[in-house]
Design a protein around this nucleic acid. Structure first.
Length: 423
RNA sequence: GGAGAGAUGGCCGAGUGGUCGAAGGCGCACGCCUGCUAAGCGUGUGUACCCCUUAAAAGGGUACCGAGGGUUCGAAUCCCUCUCUCUCCGCCA
């Protein structure tokens, strides 16, 4: 959520910067909704003031045994007037709040203009693209031939866009998860969390998935819960409605969780393989930072995610998303894209974002810069480090051999009982 | 799932219808005192929003004692519903 004061003071600036995302907002409603609600509130508060005053007088009169019938009559009128105004005010506030919750975050000044992936800016590349003396295969072919991935049976059990890992495939996925967690906890200062995988509506609203993106979430019927689409949701919401100690910042969390997404509207894309599933594994980083450090923290987070790829010796590039490609809550995002020989292209494997105070404002996560001072919203950051399934894809495709086997990256071997080759 | 107890400020903890945003303590901030440290003394110390101004503050107001509703001129205090926590029983991984 944006700062209401910013909208009041400089609506044109906000309009301009939101427009760079390509998002259309009915701005003409803002001033009307804001004015409506404030006028109603002011009127109602004046009436309540008068009522409280009278009520006090009645108390005094009654205590002294005097007659209180005059103010009692007067207060009856007031109560009626107040009662009549409360409902409409509540509605006006709800309309205003709904409006505010649908405005995306402002892109950071450094974010390149542009409307889609084509306008993203490549920041750097790392690693050598492997050369094969045979035609490299897709990971789903590799996986099915080695009998470590089984999409047909996953479809039988659940449906399309699910995967079943078998034997050394499952082991490889698990090794990746543990390798990533060990790196971030032992060397990069993140605390490991195992959060709930189901969260409530408040949590989803706090990070910005709701109210706008409900159609992309899986939801449970009886208690109104949602399956997390990313660990960003539970991790960021850990400190919802808290005032944090400055000394404790930045807070760094890492969690492995499965992620669940409806993928509504993505029907033609990536229908085969592990790239786009309703359920996938991810190791996620979340930081809560002081505002003045958050961009420095973002760079460090990107480096933490890159380190996973470097140690796996997987070639990748870092891309800075343009305004049109930014997620709803993000002010600035770097994507890591890994090279996939089977597709002959770079594919997203991580996304690291600084949401600045956008989520903190929704989720009421604050801290006190000075012992006595006012509270300030923290900045929240999140990043995948990495999307595990896609990392497995990259390993299979980059480490495939002519004979159909797959060499296990060295850093993973200790996690796989010394296994150096699959197949 | 059944029975019971509870939810008050950063923390602990009083408060069962009126001037309670809430005693007291701890913590914290500032000041005093003091060879140093410790102790002591004094003062202050919630959040959000609205109005008025505004560079900001001060000031005025409304709301908030788990959440929502109700009774009442008036609710932290009474009633209802819900959520959460704790204890016991049952069940279960």
């Amino acid at each position: 959520m944006l700062d209401i004061k910013l909208l009041r003071d400089d609506l044109d600036l906000v309009k301009q910067r939101i427009a760079t995302r390509g998002t259309k907002i009915g701005w003409e409603r803002f001033s009307a909704l804001d004015r409506e609600r404030r006028e109603m509130l002011a009127t109602l508060e004046r009436l309540k003031e008068k009522k409280n005053q009278l009520s006090g007088e009645i108390g005094k009169l009654k205590k002294s045994g005097a007659d209180a019938s005059a103010p009692m009559r007067e207060i009856g009128e007031l109560s009626k007037a107040i009662g009549e105004r409360e409902g409409p005010l509540a509605q006006a506030e709800r309309r205003f709040e709904e409006f505010m919750l649908l405005i995306p975050n402002l892109p950071h000044d450094s974010v390149p203009a542009g409307s889609g992936a084509a306008d993203n800016r490549e920041v750097r590349r790392w690693g050598e693209i492997p050369r094969f003396d045979f035609t490299p295969k897709n990971h789903w072919d590799i996986g099915e031939e080695l009998e470590i991935l089984d999409f047909a049976r996953a479809a039988k059990i659940a449906g399309a866009r699910f995967a079943l890992y078998r034997g050394q495939g499952a082991l490889l996925e698990r090794a990746l998860i543990q390798f990533m967690l060990d790196l971030h906890t032992r060397e990069r200062g993140y605390q490991e969390i195992i959060p709930p995988f189901l969260v409530n509506r408040d949590a989803m609203t706090g990070t910005g998935q709701l109210p706008k993106f409900e159609q992309e979430l899986f939801r449970t019927a009886d208690p109104d819960w949602f399956l997390i689409p990313t660990a960003e949701v539970p991790l960021t919401n850990i400190h919802r409605e808290e005032i944090l100690e400055r000394e404790g910042l930045p807070i760094r969390y890492v969690a492995y969780t499965p992620c669940f997404r409806r993928e509504a509207g993505s029907y033609g894309q990536d229908v085969r393989g592990l790239i786009r599933l309703h359920q996938f594994n991810k190791v996620e980083l979340v930081k809560l930072s002081e505002p003045q450090n958050s961009y420095e923290e973002l760079e460090k987070m990107v480096a933490d995610a890159e380190e996973v790829l470097k140690r796996l010796k997987l070639p990748y590039r870092v891309v800075e998303l343009c305004a049109g490609d930014l997620g709803f809550a993000s002010a600035k995002t770097y994507d890591l894209e890994v090279w996939l020989p089977g597709q002959g292209t770079y594919r997203e494997i991580s996304s690291c974002s600084n949401c600045e105070e956008f989520q903190a404002r929704r989720a009421q996560i604050r801290y006190r810069p000075e012992k006595k001072g006012r509270t300030v919203y923290v900045h929240t950051l999140n990043g995948s480090a990495l999307a595990v399934g896609r990392t497995l894809v990259a390993v299979l495709e980059n480490y495939q051999q002519k004979d159909g086997t797959v060499v296990v990256p060295e850093v993973l071997r200790p996690y796989m009982g010394g296994l150096d080759r699959i197949g």
